[in-house]
C-alpha cells in the first residue's frame, strides 16, 4: 500500500505516534497514516513535549515496515519530503537542521520524530511522526517559544490548509521513501547538505548530552552522522543539539 492511501483522522489523541504504534503492533500494514487535530501529550525526542494546539497544527504519523535493516538515513529522507512539499505549495525557503528540524527564518516550523522497533537485528516497524505549525498567530505560541517557533501562516502571510499540505505530502513521502529503500544514500546526503541550515565550514556548537562541542561543520557522513572538525580532529556524531556559534 502506498503511504497516504489509508488515513485515519482523530479529533484528539495523546500522540499520533502512540496510536500508529498501537495499530502497527496489531498488524496494520505499511502506509497507513494517523492524523489528529490535537495531541494532548505530543512528544518530541527523549520524551520532551511537543506543543500541539487544537487545529492550529498538523500532526501525523505513518506506519512503515522498511525492508532495509539500517534506518539512519530514513529521518533525513523524510525531512527532504516535508521540505519539498512546503516549498512546492508555498514557495517557502524551508531549511533542514540536522537531523530532524524544519526551519524557516531561523525558527522552527516543524519537527520529525521517528521511532522504530528492532527484534533480532531487524526492524519490525518504524513510525514516522510529523508535527508542523500551521496557523498559529504570535500569541498562540507559549512565551518561551515565541523567539524559536514560527507557523506557516506567519511565514506565508495567509492561512494554510492542512488537507492541501497532506495531499501534496504523500507523493513526496512515497518518492523519498523509495529513494531510501533503493539505497540511493548519496542522493539523500547530497540533497540534505544542500538544504541544510548551516553550510560546510561554518562554526557550530553541539550540545552532546550536556557536553559542548565546538568546531567547523563538515557535512554528513555516508550514514547520515554529523561531521564536525574540532581542535582534536574530525568527529562524527549521531546525536546532539546543533546550533550556530555566534
Amino acid at each position: 500500500m502506498r503511504i497516504g492511501e489509508k488515513i485515519l483522522y482523530f479529533s484528539t489523541l495523546s500522540s499520533t505516534n502512540d496510536m500508529a504504534r498501537q495499530l502497527a503492533l496489531q498488524g496494520e500494514a505499511e502506509g497507513t497514516v494517523v492524523v489528529a487535530d490535537e495531541q494532548t501529550s505530543g512528544r518530541g525526542t527523549k520524551g520532551r513535549s511537543w506543543f500541539s494546539t487544537a487545529s492550529l497544527g498538523l500532526y501525523a504519523s505513518i506506519i512503515l515496515r522498511p525492508k532495509r535493516p539500517e534506518l539512519s538515513l530514513l529521518p533525513l529522507a523524510m525531512g527532504l519530503a516535508c521540505r519539498q512539499t512546503l516549498n512546492e505549495i508555498y514557495g517557502l525557503n524551508v531549511a533542514l537542521k540536522w537531523p530532524n528540524d524544519l526551519i524557516i527564518n531561523n525558527k522552527k516550523v516543524g519537527g520529525l520524530l521517528l521511532e522504530s522497533s528492532f527484534s533480532g537485528g531487524v526492524p519490525v516497524y518504524a513510525i514516522f511522526g510529523l508535527g508542523l505549525n500551521l496557523n498559529h498567530g504570535p500569541d498562540d505560541f507559549p512565551e518561551e517559544l515565541r523567539d524559536k517557533a514560527i507557523s506557516l501562516r506567519q511565514a506565508y502571510g495567509h492561512r494554510v490548509d492542512r488537507e492541501e499540505i497532506l495531499n501534496q505530502l504523500w507523493p513526496n513521502i512515497n518518492f523519498w521513501y523509495q529513494v531510501f529503500l533503493d539505497g540511493q544514500d548519496k542522493r539523500i546526503i547530497n540533497f540534505f547538505e544542500q538544504h541544510h541550515i548551516f553550510s560546510k565550514g561554518e562554526e557550530i556548537r553541539i550540545d552532546f548530552n550536556g557536553q559542548e562541542i565546538i568546531g567547523l561543520f563538515d557535512g554528513l557522513s555516508p550514514d547520515g552522522a554529523l561531521v564536525i572538525v574540532t581542535a582534536e580532529g574530525r568527529k562524527q556524531l549521531t546525536t546532539g543539539e546543533v546550533s550556530l556559534k555566534r
Binding site: 525526542t45 527523549k46 534506518l71 530532524n100 520524530l113 522504530s116 528492532f118 546525536t239
Partner: peptide, 21 residues
C-alpha cells in the same frame, strides 16, 4: 519475554526500541 523492549538506541533522532528476541 520475547518482544519485550529492553532499551532504546538513538541515532539521528530516530528512537530505536530494541526488543528481546
Amino acid at each position: 519475554k520475547k518482544g519485550q523492549t529492553l532499551c532504546i538506541i538513538e541515532a539521528m533522532k530516530l528512537m530505536n526500541e530494541i526488543e528481546s528476541d
